[in-house]
Structure formats: C-alpha cells, structure tokens
C-alpha cells in the first residue's frame, strides 16, 4: 500500500497546500465560530520501514516546494526589472507570466479577453479566493491531524495556531509508532503554515508584477498571473507520491 496524505476541508473549495497533501472538499455549511476542523490525515503502510520512508519522502517533497517558493520573489523581480525577455529558453513560469501581462495592459486584450483566457482568469481568481478562505481558517480554527497505519488510527492531535494541542494516542504506543505520528504532525503543521506563507507570497509578488503593468489597479489585475507563476514554480518540483 502506498502512503496517502489527505486534507479534508470543510470549505466549499480548497487548494492543495504545499507538500504531499491532496485536498478533499466536503463543503459543509457552518456559521462563524462553529467551524469544523480541517482534518489532515496520513494513511501509512503497515511496514514500519515503508511508513518511515513515505514520511521522509513527503518531508523532502515539502522541503523542495519550500525551497522553490523561496525563489519566487527574486524571479519575479528579475522579470519586473526587465533583466529577462520572452524566450522559449525561459522556464515555463517566466514564459507564462510574460505572455499574460500584455493581456492586462490597458491597451492589451483585457477589455476583450479571449474566452479561454477569461475562463482561466476566473479559475485563478476562484483559487485565490479559496486560498484566502483557507488562510483565515488557519488563524481561526483548529486542525486535527491523524495518523492511520494499515487502517488503524494510531494517533490524533487537535491543535490551533497558538500551539494549544491535545493528543490521543493508542494505549501502550511504542516509540516507533509515536514517532510516525510525531512526523505526520510536524509535516501537517508545516504545510498548514505554508498556506499563510503562500498567500503572503502572492500578495508581495503582485506588488512586484504590478510595476510592469500600466493599469491603475495593477496589483489587483496581476494577482491571477502571479498566482499562475507560483503554481508553475511549484510544478517544477512537484512529483507524484509513491
């Protein structure tokens, strides 16, 4: 059995956070203050060595994405400074950004965006809205992190961003199993904090990219393009979990 890392989101829409997690939207309706927990669930193989290896691979994947995200601001600044121009030799992220920006210039296609581009723009806006909602959720709610090995729940921790935490462990848990839950918890929390980092990155990136756009509401107009840039940068290091 391969390891599966799932985030079960109560929101009606959600994006996958950094790391190995797949977002599963359950979309229940709830009022403020009655928000259900986001559940971060790692299903690990029965073999202890395989379980450890899966968690190590997941952590490495997250680290690679964090490292890639750390380059976003600098790469955007290079584009904004005019240090690079469109070329097929550029990475896909820079190519996509440079090809999109003219479309949002006042004299560009923004007032007559093609259907495909308009659909893409709408989708990007919805993803940013989902990310914003998830970021608010990180600050306002609890996360429940569960470690399931071979179909058996071995540990569950409920935690908020202040660090208040309560853990449930199976009776007589041994150090090896406790370590599995500990690693799952650390992985989930790092990814959860990554959602906040992601939205900050997109906001800062938009401020940089806005300098390339003459439109009055530049920073807002370029948000979807910057979001796409960030997605492309992540795609450079994203790989399927095994």
């Amino acid at each position: 059995m391969n390891a599966v890392f799932t985030v079960i989101e109560p929101l009606p829409a959600a994006i996958a956070p950094p790391g190995p997690w797949r977002a599963q939207v359950v979309g229940s309706s709830f009022s403020l203050g009655d928000q259900p927990d986001v559940i971060w669930q790692a299903h690990l193989p029965a073999d202890p060595a395989a379980a450890q290896a899966a968690l190590r691979a997941a952590a490495a994947q997250l680290e690679a994405q964090e490292a890639a995200l750390a380059t976003v601001t600098q790469r955007l600044q290079r584009v904004a400074s005019g240090a690079i121009s469109f070329s097929s030799a550029l990475p896909p992220a820079e190519q996509a950004l440079l090809s999109m920006l003219p479309a949002i210039q006042p004299e560009g296609a923004s007032f007559g965006l093609g259907d495909t581009l308009q659909e893409w723009w709408q989708a990007a806006q919805e993803q940013i809205a989902a990310l914003s909602a998830q970021a608010r959720e990180v600050l306002g709610g609890y996360a429940t992190v569960e470690t399931v090995q071979s179909g058996r729940l071995i540990g569950r921790t409920r935690i908020n961003w202040h660090g208040d935490a309560r853990s449930l462990l199976i009776a007589g848990i041994d150090p090896a199993h406790a370590a599995l839950h500990q690693q799952t918890l650390a992985l989930a929390l790092r990814s959860r904090a990554g959602l906040l980092r992601l939205i900050g990155l997109v906001g800062r990136g938009a401020a940089i990219a806005a300098t390339m756009v003459a439109a009055p509401a530049g920073a807002i107009m370029v948000l979807p393009a910057v979001w796409q840039f960030v997605q492309e940068v992540l795609a450079e290091v994203r790989q399927p979990m095994v």
Binding site: H162, R166, S167, L168
Partner: peptide, 12 residues
C-alpha cells in the same frame, strides 16, 4: 500566552 499540550491514552 500559553502553549498547552495534553495527552490522553485511549484504546485502539
């Protein structure tokens, strides 16, 4: 501010 961690032990 407080950081609180509580553990409880339960069965399978």
């Amino acid at each position: 501010m407080e950081v609180t961690t509580s553990y409880v032990v339960v069965g399978p």
